[in-house]
Write a protein that binds this DNA or RNA. Structure first.
Length: 284
DNA sequence: CTAGGATCCTGTCAGC
DNA sequence: TGCTGACAGGATCCTA
């Protein structure tokens, strides 16, 4: 997904467009994508947009919370006086809606909110607001990078000592909010090889990694998330916000911005992984 | 408990 | 052109 910065981006946007507005009606296009009795949201007022890790929480006036998880390809698109979208980047941000990837539609005062999701891994789930903390995913969520202590992270890495560090930081029970982009970017920042055994990191390396995660995610949030729609360049061609700040992600074959060496792509923990073989040495 | 792989689903792209 | 396999910004489940 749609990692933490993208969810925070859509949270902030929705906060400005439809906080305190009434949801007139929700329409479900894909049963799998909506868990709970849909009638519960009709006629309620949105009283808060919160976020925990990569989960967006929409508190409603009747004591129900909609937990929205975008997973791999989810998108939230606000269509009101203007378009505002975040999540998996695609033409849906500017396309006619609803379309065949639309799974849920919320008709709201002043606009329509679309939940689009190509692969249907994402979902909207209704939970009584008071029970959100007991939800399995939410309950097991680790602190976000800025709330995480170096010692706590290192202790967790020791427990997973034989797994590659990249795979471990993708685990939301270890640290919340990091996904495939920011894992690669944070490891590049800290000059750590993604395949290093988690237990082999020194405390100063863990500190750098934590610092890297904070830096790359904060920078992304400040620029509106890496996937805040596609934008149009001065020459009329389409660009992706990712290219504005990614140092290694999807840059295989290109030059490392730090040392000029060629960025490589390998597989770690089943995920495509990008790194600089010179800055991020295997051994250390 | 950990580690690693399969799985959910749709779509696109490279290679034959 | 048509087919096939690989891959994809996530998380869970299963097996060893």
């Amino acid at each position: 997904m749609p990692e933490l910065p993208e969810v925070e981006t859509i949270r902030r946007g929705l906060d400005s467009f439809c906080l305190h507005k009434k949801i007139k009606q929700a329409k479900i296009y894909c049963e799998k994508s909506f868990i709970g009795p849909v009638e519960l949201v009709n006629g309620t007022e949105i009283i808060a947009f919160r976020r925990k890790g990569k989960a967006l929480l929409v508190d409603l006036s009747n004591g129900i919370t909609m937990m929205i998880h975008l997973r791999m390809t989810g998108q939230l698109i606000w269509d009101g006086k203007e378009r505002y979208a975040a999540g998996h980047p695609s033409e849906n941000f500017v396309a006619e809606l609803p379309n065949k990837q639309t799974r849920v539609e919320f008709e709201i005062e002043d606009g329509v909110l679309y939940f689009n999701d190509q692969r249907k891994f994402g979902f909207v789930k209704l939970i009584p607001t008071g029970e959100v903390e007991q939800d399995r995913f939410i309950a097991s969520l680790a602190p976000e990078p800025w709330d995480m202590k170096v010692e706590e992270l290192q202790a967790k890495l020791k427990r997973r000592k034989d797994s590659p560090i990249k795979a471990v930081i993708l685990d939301q029970k270890v640290i919340a909010g990091i996904g495939n982009i920011y894992a690669d970017e944070a490891l590049f920042f800290a000059k750590i090889h993604p395949g290093r055994k988690a237990g082999s990191l020194s405390s100063s390396e863990v500190a750098e990694l934590l610092k890297g995660a904070c830096e790359v995610m904060t920078a992304s949030i400040e620029s509106g998330g890496s996937t805040m729609a596609t934008y149009v360049r001065a020459d009329g061609t389409r660009g992706n916000y990712l290219e504005k700040f990614a140092q290694v992600f999807r840059r295989e074959g290109k030059e490392c911005p730090r040392c000029g060496a060629e960025i490589l792509k390998i597989k770690v923990g089943g995920r495509g992984t990008h790194f600089c073989p010179v800055c991020q040495k295997e051994g250390c």
